[in-house]
């Protein structure tokens, strides 16, 4: 595929930060693509580099201590090396972002309406203040905020968490972005509100045809809304495939572990969960070879070399993973009782 064929293409992206302890390789070779109208979920735990990847696309991780390699192209436009002014236009214009904590993501001292207007005006120099306000009201109405015309004059603290997240979505939509990045958009919300916001995102994706990057640790949310999944661990992509591929034919032991660790409300899962032993590695001095090796009960001598991210299943060439085990071995090893999981045969000492 030629570059530019995808809406967004990230290839071999590396982000590292100079810190007092040493160089933190937060993102260490991440590649994925996003198409129009598609939801790609980046899944991983804290420290996996999923948020850093997302924020780097908008240049929000730029700082004197940060260094970048690789590329990320939005319709052929390079984002990693873009100038501040180019980035400014892209931010909120072509790529918009929704953050995790709606409680703190809005400026407490400005009215809701004027915070949306601020973004509209930043990207459209022709629009008048009152036109922009009308657009803000329409947007708030569209994302399901009741009495939008009155509530533009409210301050963030007068809104509940769910309503604030709707405001964030309205803001993100204000300039009809091509890509929407949602970083844990429902994590801070109650379940019934979470369901409302996920519904909102679904509608939005249908209506706008924007590509959505969903950053999350919640596999339930992923199962609910994503088309494709990128699983990240300690800065690297360990597996990538469609929703069903990842859930029903996972290839990487870390993915098995994640799937095995989750509790389900619709199933009786008595007894011990097949959890992943140990803790994620330090990103300053990660283990050589596969980063998951120290926690992986199936590791063997080859794992000290870094496996390539490539397809191992001929029937699904888009399903790639970073593991040295053969597809046959994987099918046997991932089975723990009647579910997929990471079989740990010894008690966990953290």
């Amino acid at each position: 595929m030629s570059p530019g064929a995808h809406l967004l293409e990230v290839s071999n992206l590396k982000v590292s930060f100079q810190t007092e302890e040493g160089v933190v390789r937060a993102v260490d070779g991440v590649s994925f693509a996003l198409e129009q109208g598609e939801v790609v979920a980046i899944v991983g735990e804290s420290g996996s580099g999923k948020s850093v990847t997302a924020m780097t696309l908008l240049g929000l991780t730029r700082s004197p201590n940060a260094s970048f390699e690789g590329s990320a192209q939005l319709e052929g436009k390079e984002l990693i090396t873009a100038s501040e002014e180019q980035l400014r236009e892209i931010r909120g214009g072509e790529i918009a972002m929704i953050f995790q904590d709606p409680m703190s993501s809005l400026d407490p001292v400005y009215r809701i309406g004027s915070q949306i207007v601020e973004q509209i005006v930043a990207h459209d120099f022709q629009v008048s203040k009152s036109e922009a306000m009308e657009r803000a009201i329409a947007l708030m109405d569209r994302v399901g905020i009741p009495r939008a015309r009155e509530r533009v004059r409210s301050y963030p603290h007068e809104f509940s968490g769910g309503m604030r997240q709707r405001v964030m979505i309205a803001m993100a939509l204000s300039c009809s972005p091509k890509v929407l990045i949602a970083d844990e958009p429902t994590t801070a919300l109650d379940v019934t509100i979470q369901a409302q916001i996920l519904d909102e995102l679904r509608t939005l994706r249908k209506e706008t045809d924007a590509g959505i990057i969903l950053v999350t640790h919640d596999l339930g949310v992923v199962a609910d809304i994503a088309d494709r999944i990128v699983v990240m661990y300690a800065g690297r992509v360990v597996e990538q495939g469609t929703l069903d591929e990842i859930f029903y034919n996972p290839q990487h032991p870390y993915t098995w572990g994640l799937l095995g660790s989750i509790t389900r409300v619709d199933r009786d899962t008595t007894g011990l969960l097949p959890s992943i032993p140990g803790t994620p590695p330090s990103l300053v001095s990660p283990p050589a070879g596969c980063h998951f090796r120290p926690r992986c009960p199936h590791a063997f001598d080859r794992c000290t070399d870094v496996p390539a991210l490539e397809a191992h299943l001929p029937e699904t060439p888009q399903h790639v993973d970073r593991c040295w085990l053969s597809a046959m071995q994987k099918r046997d090893l991932r089975q723990v009782g009647d579910r997929i999981g990471l079989a740990a045969d010894e008690p966990v000492i953290a």
Partner: peptide, 26 residues
């Protein structure tokens, strides 16, 4: 029932098969 139906099940097929009713309001 509303709480249960609001929780997405980490299983795409069952999640699709299930009828869900999102409770509005706060």
């Amino acid at each position: 029932a509303a709480l249960l139906s609001a929780i997405p099940i980490p299983d795409p097929r069952e999640n699709r098969a299930r009828e869900r009713e999102v409770v509005g309001g706060e």
